[in-house]
Computed example of a mutant assay.
Amino acid sequence: MTSLNDLPLRDDLRGREPYGAPQLDVPYALNTNENPYPPSERLVKAIGEAAMGVAGTLNRYPDRDAVALRADLAAFLNTDTPAAGLTVERVWAANGSNEIIQQILQAFGGPGRTALGFEPSYSMHPIITAVSGTRWVNAFRDEDFGLEPERAVAAVEEHRPDVVFLTSPNNPTGTALPLDAIKAVLAAAPGVVVVDEAYAEFRRAGTPSALTLLDGHPRLIVTRTMSKAFAMAGARLGYLAADPAVIEALLLVRLPYHLSAVTQAVARTALAHGEELLGGVEALRRERDAVVGWLRAEGFRVADSDANFVLFGTFPDRRKVWEGLLGRGVLIREVGPPEWLRVSVGTPGEMAAFRTALQQVRGGTTPRTPPAGFAGNSEESL
């Protein structure tokens, strides 16, 4: 049998592990920040009809620039943030926000170039950076997971990166950045600044979006996704807003016809039913704030969250706690700072199960054995 070591793999990829959170059959999966509310029967029917509508044309390539979809995305962003004033020329879409990040690094990164981020943050930023041949620099977040503008600027001035990643709300901490910090980085950065807003729809009232900074900042890129608030993780649709020149740059590296006709049809249908899909966001915000309050009342440290997840701790042995919860059918995420754990916000019933299981684990009750063959969170080894 041929092994990976027998293949002429790139040297910088040797020893790496594929990215991925555990996918286990458990009663309460609270580890990947999914929206727990599935589409209604009405929306399921509409999505099916949309797919059928393009099925008869699948012998032809789709609109390679996804113009109609981008127009719909621009309209949504203008509703979400009226000050954005976006047009189709300033919006781009791809297969999930990870492909968006990949395209950005293909266009503005590469061998001899540098990308800078502030960890703990979204682990795919350094992973995709490395795969693109770009050098990664971790400038670290503050102890409270925030980012002081002066320190951020100092890091940018020291390393002069071609790409800067700012994540707001931040994953895995849930921390949102003030606009002053983003403005300061924009003023100092010699290259593009990417503000990853995958969880923006969950932000608390009064928390602004970087979309308001697009005018006058042609090197600012704001990325979003339909995987979280829109409950469309299975549709794989990410998008960005930026200056039209940025879109022109991405056209140079995108694969031909990268968004299928079915993906475009499904995403447009979801946007047309946005009021329904986003209807659960407020409930998830309330559930998030409730679990933050409960965890703090129980004596845990909890990071302020503007997302649909909560980072809490601290644990001398977080793996033991994680396994204890898993043994009770509750799967959360072992990610981020070493002594912390992250739980996605689910339905009231799911969160009740999480609270009960955590109390039992904390009380020292012997947990059941995790599923056979489970090797842990592969993200931790990347």
Rank of each mutant, 00 (worst) to 15 (best):
A71W: 09
A83V: 09
V91S: 03
L86E: 05
V91H: 00
A93L: 09
F76E: 06
T81G: 13
T81R: 15
N95Y: 02
A83Y: 07
W92M: 08
A84C: 08
F76G: 04
N95P: 01
D80S: 11
A84W: 09
D80W: 13
L69C: 04
G96D: 02
D72A: 13
V91Y: 00
T87L: 04
L77T: 08
R90L: 02
R70S: 10
N98M: 13
T79E: 09
G85F: 04
L77W: 12
L73V: 10
L86M: 10
T79Y: 02
A75Q: 07
A93D: 01
L73S: 09
N78D: 00
N78W: 01
V91A: 03
L69G: 04
N78C: 00
A75S: 08
V88E: 14
S97R: 13
T79K: 07
A83W: 07
A74G: 11
F76Y: 12
A83F: 04
R70W: 13
T79I: 07
A75N: 06
F76L: 10
A74W: 05
A75E: 02
T81I: 15
R90N: 12
L69M: 09
F76A: 06
V88S: 15
A84M: 05
W92E: 03
P82S: 07
A74Q: 00
W92V: 03
T79D: 07
D80F: 15
V88N: 07
L86I: 01
D80C: 08
R90Y: 00
A83P: 09
A75Y: 01
N95M: 03
R70K: 15
A84N: 01
P82G: 07
T79A: 10
A84H: 11
A75R: 06
L69Q: 06
F76H: 06
N98E: 10
N78M: 06
T79V: 05
A93T: 05
G96M: 00
N98T: 11
E89M: 11
T79F: 10
N78T: 03
L77Y: 11
A71S: 13
N78F: 00
L86P: 08
T79L: 10
T81V: 15
E89C: 13
R90G: 10
P82R: 05
R70H: 12
A74P: 01
T87E: 14
V88A: 15
G96K: 02
S97P: 14
T87A: 05
V88L: 12
R90P: 07
A75I: 07
P82W: 09
P82C: 05
V91T: 12
N95E: 09
D80E: 10
L73F: 02
D72M: 03
A74T: 09
V88P: 08
A93K: 01
W92I: 02
P82A: 12
N98V: 08
L86F: 04
L77K: 06
L77E: 00
L77C: 14
P82I: 08
A94Q: 03
V91K: 02
F76D: 08
N98F: 10
L77Q: 13
T81K: 14
G96A: 09
A75D: 06
A83C: 10
D80N: 03
G96H: 06
T79S: 07
G96C: 03
A74N: 03
V91C: 01
A84Y: 07
A93C: 08
R70L: 14
